[in-house]
């Protein structure tokens, strides 16, 4: 057999699917480098594709597209992870607007972010309550951090965050008077809880102007005392404590 014939059969069997694993992998590597092989492969794909007509389409699971979109979204926004924006609430909205996926499933996921913002439990009228939004980014899904400045109690809430195996989320603070480097507030437990009193050493004025960050760290928290994974940042914004919001 000529070399041309050999190549032809290699490609034909690759497309048919019967090429042994090693030869299959080596051909797949070659096709990206050698356009003539790619063209030959596509010729065979075209020849045999008619067989697929015998296959009847099946219904899809409801979550698959959303899962695909989530992966793409995470891959696409990766470069932004190291580039915190100064106004995360606004940019969160922008981001929601930017991600106009066509399906209801994905829209529902985006709406969750907004809905949680809007339906935060009303604080007691006298307390100064602040909320920070952590954008959906790279591998750092969105959180809401609520801080009651008077009692310095914090409450962290995952919005779209999911536990990661062998990883922990860690909350950091950068505050005036505590140096330029982030200080650890605490490592979240697997169900996203954190010591509510972890901010007691900071006074309310400091907390009000502080920047918070959440990073994804090895299990148990950063081994170095500084964020090792890319962090996402949030600033505290007053919740609408003074507005009357009707009967509850």
């Amino acid at each position: 057999m000529s070399e041309r014939d050999d190549l032809e059969m290699l490609v034909a069997e690759f497309v048919l699917g019967t090429l042994p694993k090693e030869e299959r992998e080596s051909l797949q590597a070659r096709r990206t480098r050698e356009p003539e092989i790619e063209a030959l492969i596509q010729q065979w794909e075209t020849r045999l594709a008619g067989m697929l007509d015998a296959i009847e389409p099946v219904e899809l699971g409801p979550d698959l597209l959303a899962r695909i979109q989530r992966t793409i979204e995470q891959q696409q926004s990766a470069p932004e992870a190291t580039n915190p924006t100064p106004d995360n609430v606004v940019s969160l909205r922008k981001q929601v607007a930017r991600w106009r996926w066509s399906t209801a499933v994905a829209s529902a996921a985006a709406l969750v972010l907004v809905a949680v913002l809007a339906t935060q439990p009303e604080p007691e009228p006298q307390t100064q309550s602040f909320v920070a939004v952590f954008q959906h980014n790279d591998e750092q899904p969105a959180f809401l951090l609520t801080v009651d400045l008077d009692s310095r109690q914090l409450n962290i809430q995952p919005v779209t965050a999911e536990p990661k195996q062998d990883k922990s989320y860690q909350l950091w603070i950068v505050a005036e008077g505590y140096g330029p480097n982030p200080r650890s507030v605490g490592v979240m437990s697997d169900n996203f809880t954190l010591d509510q009193a972890a901010l007691r050493e900071y006074d309310p004025e400091t907390l009000r102007d502080a920047t918070f960050g959440i990073s994804l760290e090895p299990k148990g928290g950063s081994p170095t005392g500084q964020p090792t994974g890319p962090a996402i940042h949030g600033f505290l914004y007053p919740t609408a404590a003074n507005e009357t919001s009707g009967q509850q």
């Binding site: 296959i55 099946v58 219904e59 996926w101 399906t103 994905a106």
Partner: peptide, 17 residues
């Protein structure tokens, strides 16, 4: 992204099968 959603709706049932 909107076209991606449409492409998925149009082709995924066949590809899944």
């Amino acid at each position: 992204r909107e076209a991606f959603g449409r492409l998925y709706e149009a082709t995924a049932p066949k590809l899944m099968a």
